[in-house]
Nucleic acid binder design. Structure first.
Length: 211
DNA sequence: GCGACAG
DNA sequence: ATCTTGTCGC
């Protein structure tokens, strides 16, 4: 379905959100994780970087550049980024076991943020990790691994997670085919040294034409 | 009108 | 997101 207006985008989110699964597939044992990010200049450059979870080395990557016509609107972020991210995912020579998106999953006004959208359209388990969050949350403890709930109307929709001591926590929520505990463990695996997941850092660098 | 507001 | 100086720490 073509989506070009705000109303159409919201209708599309409401149509797709029931397809989100909050259950991790039986025997889920991811060997690879993909980071997704888009960098903007006069156009957009989407980058996907697949890392081996055991070594955090890059095993595959893809870049797609094109025009971006949908504006940035909080709550409709996916409609700005997915048109370039999906083609980039298709260019990969391997299918990643999980997608780590730079944004929200169900911690979203309609419970259908970028990570959910990417997961449902690809069928790949996904999570959303962002640098800031909507909704209510309190600062987690000071140690790596400490977390607190992100809530909306007293309903848990995600977690803050301290990935590194002395710095602001990250905000994570499940995207698709994923449970929050598995997502938390995955993010900790991806953050041995820096606040943000290695997947996100590599995709960000790649989208900027570095590396 | 005012504050909130993923990137 | 992007703009943009200095500063602290490994």
């Amino acid at each position: 379905m073509k989506v070009s207006t705000e109303d159409e985008a919201i209708a599309e989110q409401l149509r797709l959100r029931d397809q989100v699964s909050q259950e991790t597939p039986e025997g889920f044992a991811p060997k690879t994780a993909a980071g997704l990010d888009v960098h903007y200049t006069d156009r957009g450059t989407a980058a996907v970087c697949v890392l081996d979870l055991a070594t955090l080395e890059v095993v595959d990557q893809a870049v797609v550049t094109g025009s971006v016509d949908f504006p940035y609107i909080s709550g409709l972020f996916a409609f700005r980024e997915l048109p370039l991210l999906l083609p980039a995912l298709e260019k990969l020579s391997v299918t990643p076991d999980v997608l780590v998106c730079d944004g929200q999953g169900i911690a979203h006004p309609r419970r259908f943020g970028l990570a959910c959208h990417a997961g449902v359209l690809t069928g790949i388990p996904s999570i959303g990790v962002s640098k800031s969050a909507n909704g209510g949350w309190e600062m987690p403890g000071p140690n790596r691994g400490d977390w607190t709930r992100i809530e909306d109307e007293r309903r848990p929709i995600g977690r803050t997670l301290r990935t590194r001591e002395g710095v602001k926590p990250v905000f994570l929520s499940i995207g698709h085919k994923m449970d929050i505990d598995t997502a938390t463990e995955l993010v900790l695996t991806l953050t041995p040294k820096y606040r943000l997941p290695e997947t996100t850092r590599r995709a960000d660098r790649l989208s900027r034409g570095l590396d």
